[in-house]
Design a protein around this nucleic acid. Sequence first.
DNA 1: CTGAAAGCGCTTACAG
DNA 2: CTGAAAGCGCTTACAG
Lengths: 344, 344
Amino acid sequence: MADPTLADVAGEAGVSLSTASRALREGHAVHNETRARVRAAARKLGYEPNHLARSLRTRSSRLVGVVVPDIAIDFYARTVKAAQDALDRAGYQVLVVNTEREPEREAAALRTLAAHQVEGVLLAASGEAPQLPSVPVVSFDNILDAPGVARVALANRDGIGLLVDHLVARHRQRRVAYVGGPPMLTSGIERLDGFRHAVAAAGLDCPDEYVRVGDPAWSAASGAEATAALLALPTPPTAIVAASDTLALGALEALRAAGARVPDDVALVSFDDPYFGDLLDPPLTALSRAERELGDLAASLLLAALEGTGGPPGETRVPVRLIVRRSCGCWPPATLLREPRLGA
Amino acid sequence: MADPTLADVAGEAGVSLSTASRALREGHAVHNETRARVRAAARKLGYEPNHLARSLRTRSSRLVGVVVPDIAIDFYARTVKAAQDALDRAGYQVLVVNTEREPEREAAALRTLAAHQVEGVLLAASGEAPQLPSVPVVSFDNILDAPGVARVALANRDGIGLLVDHLVARHRQRRVAYVGGPPMLTSGIERLDGFRHAVAAAGLDCPDEYVRVGDPAWSAASGAEATAALLALPTPPTAIVAASDTLALGALEALRAAGARVPDDVALVSFDDPYFGDLLDPPLTALSRAERELGDLAASLLLAALEGTGGPPGETRVPVRLIVRRSCGCWPPATLLREPRLGA
DNA sequence: CTGAAAGCGCTTACAG
DNA sequence: CTGAAAGCGCTTACAG
């Protein structure tokens, strides 16, 4: 027996299709008694409205798409969750698609989402702006330079600045190196740029060989490799800024393999804070994670655009804080020291 | 200007709606020349078929739902990704929903998915079987005892057995305690049960106070609390089996806070292997993660059911392996020792 | 091989 | 307040 349809409910309640339709929704003038009869019939039959039919008719799918490189990466998993929470509260369902950073998969994802009539898209693109659908798009993490597209990202430059400044001001570090991702997407470009600026502002030299970039996945392995290369230098650095948690983990591994003590021989700080940062050896000094804020914000921006209350799309940054532990050379008490919030 | 419709394409190509429809899909007899003309028109207009309309008409949405407690938890993020990969290859889109372990949200999620006409559901339930949709359902992680529902989970009992046996056989441990989740869902029940059996089979006593369970989220905090309680016992254990990575992290924190050396004072092993297990202090002996296999398997089972090639729904277990590091008391060389695969 | 028509399950003007 | 009819954008018998 197939799922009951609105016609079945109408039949059961002895009313027309139109009346049944109105009785089941709010804001329509229907006799209380009729409404009760229809609702009873719906309950009795276990009626569930067919969303496909409704969407087709109303031209409103209440579906939004979220496109990310890899949902198994903590950063994306948390951002997606936060965004989904907010969208869910506003009555939208979410179609999530992984692209594995492949341009063809990203393009295919966008086409599929369009075919499913999504009303908006949250996109963490893996490259330059792909062919965008005709609905509102919010780019996050990797900022897209395309007309009409809103942009949200972490305060990449400021964050790296916090890390460098701490090493220099608090620990008098002078030989500070960078282990980052390739300078291709927003975070790769801005974090590297933030590093260069912070180092210059602190009056340090920054020889080219102190700047290392890993693979496009920012893998731990590539962080380890970059770190090993730094340690093999004639004048190796005495402090390393890792541009992500995975890179920091790789760096830690390489430092350990090379017998370098952290922070005594080489200090290490990381852009992202692994949730187990406290339990590493040594506990890792890092920036606070802000995926919840990022996902929330991206979702709000999309919702505003969907409701037409948005204003023109702009760019917003989510601030991050410094979490001081021991890998930088500090020896904080059990209660973690936290520096004040960065201004947005 | 609204998105072009099939009627627009037909008009542009000078053919009927039916011919346009057939020309755009495979397996329909259409003149080569007509087909080319229609396709050119579609390309020219940037036509994308409306999936909603197609689904409504063919009564096949090619949509499946995935319901998990929390996509931000690594285990679920990875399982979902693997399942999504497999489903995607088979041409299905995936609607992912978080339930936050709330029964009402789970029930609402299932209703919403039904409204969206999903053709099947992958469900990691947070309790007893909820009201299930009338389409094929595969329960994973938490096995559901409901007619027609396929079941997939890790080899929970065997896995815990591997951990206990290693502590007892290799390290002559006699005072082995358990820090687990509440014995409510499949993994909570089976891991505890596996512990009790393995300990009994090894001929150890297992006083009640050596068995501790944390909160329903298996949080690190509750693992720390349980561990602290164990250490406060008149005769504290000399080895702890943690039933998850989060619990193990909490245990490690509590051990460190209490000044207990690991593994010298207390050995620690964990069911799940955190991906940074190598970098903890000490490196953690744990079971290999098998989310990819689990997600793959769940997806295949669902696909088989969707294609009617499934046979009656049964129960399948995904085996896990022991990864020996140092927290158990071993001192393995740089290359990790791995024990042979568990039989399924 | 091609086209006119019906229909998937809804919602919404339009009358009454 | 209620109902008959049209229509959202497709696919698919049914004729020809």
